[in-house]
Amino acid sequence: MKALVLTAKKHLEIKDYDQPTVKPNEVLVHTAWAGICGTDKALYNGLPGSANAVPPIVLGHENSGVVAAVGSAVQDFKVGDRVSVDPNIYCHKCFYCRTSRPELCEHLDAVGVTRDGGFEEFFTAPEEVVYHIPDNVSLKAAAVIEPISCAAHAVDLLELHPYQTALVIGDGFEGQLIAQILKARGVKEVTLAGTSDEKLANNQKHFGFKTINNLKTPKAIKADTYDIVVEAVGLPQTQEQAVEAASRGGQVLMFGVGNPDSTFKVNTYKVYQKQLKIQGTFINPYTFEDSIALLQSGDVDPLPLISNILDFAHVEDFVSGKLKGVSKAIVKVAGEEA
Rank of each mutant, 00 (worst) to 15 (best):
K93N: 13
L323P: 03
K210V: 02
I133W: 02
D261H: 14
D224T: 14
A151K: 03
G118C: 07
E336Q: 08
D311I: 11
E174Y: 13
L310T: 08
G49C: 06
A166E: 00
P87E: 01
P56F: 13
I178Y: 04
I148P: 09
K9D: 02
T225D: 02
R115C: 05
V229M: 04
V5Y: 02
F318P: 00
R185W: 01
T238C: 07
C37Q: 04
R101F: 14
V58Y: 00
D197I: 06
L235Q: 11
D86P: 06
H107T: 11
I278Y: 12
F255W: 10
G280M: 09
V5H: 00
A246W: 05
V168C: 03
Q275W: 05
V113P: 00
N259Q: 13
T287K: 15
A151E: 06
L276N: 11
E240I: 08
L235D: 01
Q176E: 13
G170R: 01
H314T: 12
V144R: 05
L310Y: 06
L177F: 12
I145A: 12
L167V: 00
G172N: 06
V137G: 11
E159W: 00
G71I: 03
S72R: 14
Y131E: 04
T7V: 15
A151Q: 04
K328F: 10
P304H: 05
V331F: 01
M254Y: 09
I212S: 02
G49A: 09
L235F: 13
Y269V: 06
V331I: 14
R185T: 05
L276H: 09
L157H: 11
E62R: 07
L192Q: 01
P285W: 07
E13N: 03
K199G: 05
E337A: 14
E336A: 08
H30V: 01
T99Y: 04
R115F: 03
S196Y: 12
L276M: 10
G112E: 05
E159V: 12
R185M: 11
H107M: 11
A313K: 09
E337I: 08
G256L: 02
V257G: 01
L192S: 01
E189K: 15
H11L: 14
D317K: 12
I57R: 11
C91R: 07
E244I: 13
S291P: 09
S64F: 07
G325E: 10
P302C: 09
V144H: 04
H161M: 14
H206M: 08
T225K: 12
T238W: 03
T217A: 13
T195V: 14
T99M: 04
G117N: 06
H30K: 15
Y286K: 14
G325P: 03
F318H: 11
G117L: 06
L6K: 00
V130T: 10
V319W: 08
A232P: 02
E337C: 00
S327C: 09
G71Y: 02
N63L: 14
V230T: 03
S149E: 08
P20V: 07
L139G: 04
